[in-house]
Design a protein around this nucleic acid. Structure first.
Lengths: 216, 216
DNA sequence: TAGATTGTTAATCGATTAACAATC
DNA sequence: TAGATTGTTAATCGATTAACAATC
């Protein structure tokens, strides 16, 4: 295979957008899609798209572009979205419930097998088809279900303690939706999703826009 | 003021995490906090924290650190979080409802004045204190409320059309939670929040972890 | 064939990190 | 004072972009 030296996180983050575009293309019945087209659709540079796609190992055809079906398969395989991963969700509040209802995840191999919450009135109920269990069963539940991913949507003050329980129970990956930076062993994979950081960016862009307009 | 050449988006994105730590410090009654401490807490390099804080214009004291109250004020002012912004939310589904319940936003000046949805059974109801109005009132509603921000949580297929209505109604900033890249005029500020990109990163890290372990 | 598009190698750009003098 | 911490200037690192030969 050709040796590919590529930017990492930024490229990986862009892959789902590519996948989205390419899927639409597949719906149209086009057998090939060019990096140029993808770039245009997403307001990116064509060279960036080509570089990013290279990490999946896919080979394009000059003049035509990339074979749509193979490209989708390559991206999904690279992301591991072609096999299923058992997940549990901790904290069935507003955000947690919303995430349970997100069908897209299932499409990408993420199976939320159970949710856990401290609120006794929720326990036993189902939200979007997922049964809510008591937080006291968390450790046993994780082992029973052989879950590898935990989606963490508890209130921030409980984030660290919950994470420690998760690690004890053998969870290897945590998708952290709290605004707490978790202290966990190095071998645990943590991905933090931070709405505040996006909102901060939006806020600053809004201010820049205003000064830009005033400067006219 | 000292001239500060700084990385932009990444620095801005980190500011809310700093704010979170510094607030805790304020709770403890500490009058000063050092960049070193913040860095330790977030697993960052001290120099990075100092560089980031410099963009807010705050001046630290050698040996002591930054004055906590002034630092909080400086970050909030830089982000524009010290004044309120009227927002509306479009698409009161799972995610939309969750966002309406997110108190943290109000704390940072984001006021969701109304929500809009196509579902007649939702119209008139309140979710987390926000009244749901009919989508047909969207344009008038935005003008009435003098909203500047629209939080877009409609199903992806409706994202582009809805965005166009928003722009027509005079919205200047869109916080886009759909996985559609919006085509809007340049002067409109758009911040896209993309769960798939975070999940992609988590997925790849999980695979790398496995190969790392197998390599042992 | 001619030309669009690929993949590779090199150049640029921007963000992070290092080094260190200034200072409380 | 001595030493921790700041802010500045320079060096490194990594990601994006440019240039271009290869190719269908």
């Amino acid at each position: 295979m050709a040796k590919v030296k590529v930017s990492f996180a930024p490229s990986v983050r862009r892959l789902p957008s590519y996948l989205h575009i390419i899927r639409q293309c597949q719906g149209n019945g086009d057998p090939y899609i060019s990096g140029t087209v993808i770039a245009q659709e997403l307001n990116l540079e064509p060279i960036q798209v080509r570089k990013d796609l290279a990490i999946t190992g896919i080979i394009g055809k000059p003049k035509k572009g990339y074979p749509v079906d193979a490209l989708i398969a390559a991206i999904e395989h690279y992301l591991g979205w072609d096999e299923s991963h058992e997940a549990i969700l901790v904290g069935a509040g507003n955000l947690g419930s919303a995430l349970m209802g997100y069908q897209e995840f299932q499409l990408h191999g993420l199976k939320i097998a159970a949710a856990f919450d401290t609120d006794p009135s929720k326990v036993g109920a189902k939200i979007h088809g997922v049964t809510i269990r008591s937080m006291t069963e968390l450790e046993v539940g994780i082992k029973d279900l052989k879950a590898e991913i935990a989606i963490l949507t508890v209130p921030s003050p409980f984030a660290q303690a919950t994470a420690e329980t998760l690690v004890r129970a053998g969870i290897s990956s945590i998708w952290n939706f709290t605004n707490t930076k978790l202290k966990v062993p190095d071998e645990i994979v943590v991905q933090r999703e931070d709405l505040s950081s996006g909102y901060a960016l939006l806020s600053v862009m809004m201010q820049n826009r205003k000064t830009r307009i005033l400067a006219k």
